[in-house]
């Protein structure tokens, strides 16, 4: 079930070596600036920025496509709804179906924002191993309890994926039809069992962790001082984000 969730192997490119906290801040600035882009004239700049960031990461493009597929379904729905039903200015008429300007424009800008945001987010996550990312978020102020929960959940998701898949297989071998709505009960039993097993496992895990000093003190993550190069990357990102965000103000 997790086959489609496989993370790309972190690459050894410059983006993978970028000091994580600076990378996190820089790329997040970009992502949020993208989310705020409304002016059609800025769309090419945004898409180009996302493209350049992706090229710098050296990730294969097939990987990006695979990441865009699932949420893209929502986009397809909007592609039908917006251009045909939203707005008054008709730019083309095919029998009873009219293509409207306002709807088309808002669809194009939604699609562009969507693709750009996911592209940059993909770079952030695919070039940063999960534990490193969480440590960086912790040092930027994420509450320790949330960081711990993130790492733990991440650690056990893979185990639970296998447990769940084996339990479903075992039920299927005893004749359960898991492809129907009637299987809600069997699935609920399986999930109930997993909750109980996990609850017990958590008690053992906690005991084992306490024995090894969990909670005694907060481990400090090793920090290496950012190089000039790291800072330059951050400055570039923040500057670009600022341009995108302030463009409407500057032009008016």
């Amino acid at each position: 079930m997790l086959a489609r969730a496989t993370l790309a192997a972190p690459t050894a490119t410059s983006l993978a070596r970028w000091e994580v906290r600076l990378k996190l801040i820089g790329l997040l600035c970009l992502v949020f600036a993208f989310a705020g882009v409304n002016d059609v004239r800025l769309l090419p700049v945004m898409l180009a920025t996302a493209f350049v960031v992706y090229r710098l990461s050296s990730l294969p493009f097939r990987y990006l496509i695979s990441r865009l597929k699932v949420p893209g379904i929502f986009l397809v729905a909007l592609a039908v709804v917006l251009p045909l039903f939203s707005g008054e200015t008709v730019i083309a008429q095919f029998g009873p179906v009219a293509l409207r300007l306002e709807g088309t424009v808002s669809f194009v800008s939604i699609a562009a924002r969507f693709v750009s945001i996911i592209t940059v987010a993909t770079v952030l996550f695919a070039t940063t191993p999960m534990p490193t990312l969480v440590r960086a978020m912790n040092s930027l102020g994420l509450p320790p309890l949330l960081g711990d929960m993130l790492l733990f959940t991440y650690r056990y998701i893979f185990q639970l994926a296998e447990d769940l898949s084996r339990a479903r297989t075992a039920a299927r071998l005893r004749g359960a039809d898991l492809g129907s709505v009637r299987s809600v009960k069997t699935t609920a039993y399986i999930i109930g069992s997993l909750l109980i097993r996990s609850n017990w496992q958590a008690e053992r895990v906690l005991a084992a962790m306490t024995l090894r000093g969990y909670g005694a003190s907060r481990a400090r993550s090793p920090r290496h001082a950012p190089q000039a190069w790291d800072v330059a990357g951050l400055v570039a990102c923040v500057a670009l984000a600022a341009v995108l965000a302030l463009f409407p103000v500057l032009v008016l």
């Binding site: 733990f152 959940t153 699935t187 909670g215």
Partner: peptide, 26 residues
């Protein structure tokens, strides 16, 4: 010790995460 609840909350979260990937046909 608030952090002692972390393993339990996380393991159960992992269960919920996996369960939310199960599809039912409608």
């Amino acid at each position: 010790v608030p952090r002692n609840g972390v393993p339990k909350a996380s393991l159960l979260t992992a269960v919920f995460f996996m369960a939310s990937l199960i599809h039912f046909p409608v």
